[in-house]
Design a protein around this nucleic acid. Structure first.
Lengths: 220, 220
DNA sequence: CGGCATCTTGAGTTGGGTCAATGGTCGTGG
DNA sequence: CCACGACCATTGACCCAACTCAAGATGCCG
């Protein structure tokens, strides 16, 4: 790839996201049912997306941190199927899909990039489906913590000292279990010296130990 | 949209899928880890995709019938994260992604179409996540049967007389429960005159009754 | 300091898993 | 054509992980 083309590409990517928006903790960018207008990239902060079921139930379908993109669910029907909520004060880059489409015609890499982003989201969802469908409580929490750890690390933060932005109930919603169960498992992991837990401050003490929790379960 | 452009578009879509392939029941198009080469559309038959977890566990992440497209999980890393298996003799259209990308530059609708397809897959996955995360066994089966019914109907088949192509165990894998539980719930639904069950032949007797099963559960 | 939200812990219940046995169905070969 | 064997589905009995309900504990903010 010629250097010039690459730098053009970067410039384009930058143009894509030139609109920013600040979002206070607890506020939403869009609600379920809103007309789809754009994709969103987290610049700073933490976002959750929750899907509303036909009956009243709500489940968190994703947590997004700096560098991650969300909102893809709105493309299919031009209408968002989820609600996005800031878990802390956040800064969000707005990426109008029309702009992506136009740039894609000129720069095939832009198109490639967005295909890959959506594919990655699909893979991520399949991972959660496996977690929800075939792991037990302790395995789910272990997998969740390791996943957070890795994402923090990838973003330049410590992979061991994690400050949770979500409450226990939200973790439960995401992992398909009740608050009480989440809490009990945190306590258990602390007793077993896998984690140290103080409120939302979690320190991962034994990565290997957590890894071993996953997959060595009776379930076949 | 001028009629001519529309017909060009259709022609292009047709060119996209001009390679076909027959697949015997039980055979695979690709395995987890294979290099990604193309997307696949079901022309006739029935396909399952299953994801392999780090530990040995396997979970079915999708069932695809005529008209549905699968394989999107391979785009992210250029490597498939799942294995696709034919549940019955099937005919598959091969859609090389490069071709999609090239046509997209010329026909923006092609690009739109594939963005929407991927978004739809994400929405579908979120639905399953909700099902796995917050529904109980009976609700899951009810939701599953109604979903199948609707897809059969959309493809021109009877929405009431359904011939399952997958075994009970595969339904269980997809819905996050054991064979025995699936079987018990089918029996229960039959006792309650919601379904009539004979082997893989299911007749839906009471759509409203099934709908009411979903969402009226203790959970919260 | 009080009030409110969140988190933890305990006790009892239950949906679904496990294990084990039985029953059907289908394809193959004698 | 029937009998055998393989595979799949169903059913029963028992058990346990996670849920429910209920009480405290902890921390946060005005």
């Amino acid at each position: 790839m010629p250097a010039e083309a690459a730098s053009d590409f970067i410039k384009k990517l930058d143009e894509l996201v030139y609109v920013r928006r600040r979002l206070k903790a607890g506020n939403s960018l869009y609600h379920s049912g809103d007309r789809f207008q754009a994709l969103y990239a987290v610049k700073t902060g933490f976002i959750k997306t929750e899907s509303l079921h036909d009956d009243g139930r709500v489940q968190i379908t994703g947590f997004y941190m700096a560098g991650e993109i969300f909102g893809f669910d709105g493309i299919a029907t031009e209408e968002h199927m989820s609600t996005s909520v800031a878990l802390e004060d956040s800064e969000i880059c707005i990426i109008p899909l029309d702009r992506v489409k136009n740039f894609s015609r000129e720069f095939s890499q832009v198109q490639n990039h967005f295909f890959k982003l959506m594919s990655r989201e699909i893979v991520r969802d399949h991972t959660i489906m496996m977690l929800l469908g075939s792991m037990q409580g302790e395995e789910r929490i272990a997998a969740f913590m390791l996943n957070l750890s890795q994402r923090f690390y990838a973003r330049g933060y410590s992979p061991f000292n994690i400050v949770l932005r979500m409450k226990r109930e939200e973790i439960g919603s995401y992992l398909g279990m009740k608050v009480e169960t989440v809490s009990r498992i945190f306590t258990k992991f602390q007793d077993q010296k896998l984690l140290s837990v103080h409120q939302k401050n979690i320190r991962i003490l034994d990565v290997e130990g957590l890894r071993k929790r996953i997959g060595q379960h009776p379930s076949k």
